[in-house]
């Protein structure tokens, strides 16, 4: 899906518009930050407790910038795991990002370098928050502000954790629940924007099977199963509709953006 807003011509109020979009992006990041910050702190604590140099916490936030993988890596690095094993783990844990490209609104970011940053900084939270926003409210500056904020929470949280490791016995338990709450809320919003009940059911089947079959790698397994099920759905929809209404059959809620862009994809 590649919807295209008409390129805005330069207006006097362009600057205030941009500032408002940046502010909106920072505001979007608050709820994500509620989950990211405690995880960042946990990462900083872990780094110090594993006997690794403190700078590894912010370095991971910059070089890796993928929460669950960073937490895994601390243990592997502390045990001096061979690079080949680390490479395999990285590919397995982060393979899920492959699926985000289908619906991450990268086309909103116009500047080349900003685009590169946006791809580099496409973490779960940024993907989920950005994909949940209604089409009309999205913008490049808003997306970038969200992503930069998220990365600052990660790096900042890591540094706080490093500092805390020397001062406090243990941080408050349970703050990581914020991420679960965030994804729950975003699921509700995405469902509100587009009544994709079949997708929700297929995702439910996928994640249930994944939790039963591979509890340790539930996210990756669930996404793979989900992708396979959607491909099956595509095959069925293709045969059933055979070109007449397969595209917009189930998203009448806000069909104006999907319907009009259906055939108008361009680079």
């Amino acid at each position: 899906m590649t919807p295209h807003l008409p390129t805005p011509t330069l207006q006097p109020e362009e600057h205030t518009t941009r500032r408002r979009q940046l502010a909106a992006g920072v505001r979007d990041s608050f709820s994500a930050g509620l989950g990211i910050l405690p995880l960042g702190i946990a990462l900083g604590l872990l780094v110090v407790q594993a006997g690794l140099p403190w700078w590894l916490a912010p370095a991971l936030a910059v070089a890796v910038f993928a929460g669950s993988l960073e937490l895994l890596l601390v243990g592997m690095i502390a045990a001096a795991t061979p690079p080949a094993a680390i490479a395999l783990t990285t590919l397995a844990v982060n393979f899920r990002h492959v699926f985000y490209a289908f619906s991450f609104p990268l086309h909103l970011v116009r500047n080349r370098f900003a685009k590169a940053y946006s791809v580099y900084a496409m973490i779960d939270e940024a993907y989920a928050v950005a994909a949940a926003l209604p089409e009309a409210e999205r913008s490049g500056p808003r997306l970038l502000a969200l992503q930069v904020s998220c990365q600052l929470y990660w790096a900042g949280g890591g540094l706080v954790g490093v500092a805390l490791a020397t001062a406090l016995p243990a941080p408050v338990e349970g703050l990581e629940f914020a991420l679960c709450a965030l994804f729950t809320v975003l699921t509700l919003d995405a469902l509100h924007a587009r009544r994709e009940i079949p997708s929700l059911l297929l995702a439910g089947v996928s994640v249930t099977a994944a939790l039963l079959l591979t509890p340790g790698a539930a996210l990756l397994t669930a996404l793979l199963l989900f992708a396979v099920l959607l491909l099956l759905r595509h095959a069925l929809a293709g045969h059933a509709a055979d070109g007449e209404d397969g595209e917009d059959g189930e998203d009448g809620e806000d069909g104006q953006d999907t319907g009009t862009t259906g055939g108008a994809a361009h680079a």
């Binding site: 699926f99 699921t187 994709e196 997708s199 994640v207 959607l230």
Partner: peptide, 15 residues
């Protein structure tokens, strides 16, 4: 069109 809701639900459950 189909992926976002499902991916978010999966993230919710796994988190």
């Amino acid at each position: 069109v189909w992926m976002p809701v499902g991916i978010m639900a999966i993230l919710a459950v796994t988190s």
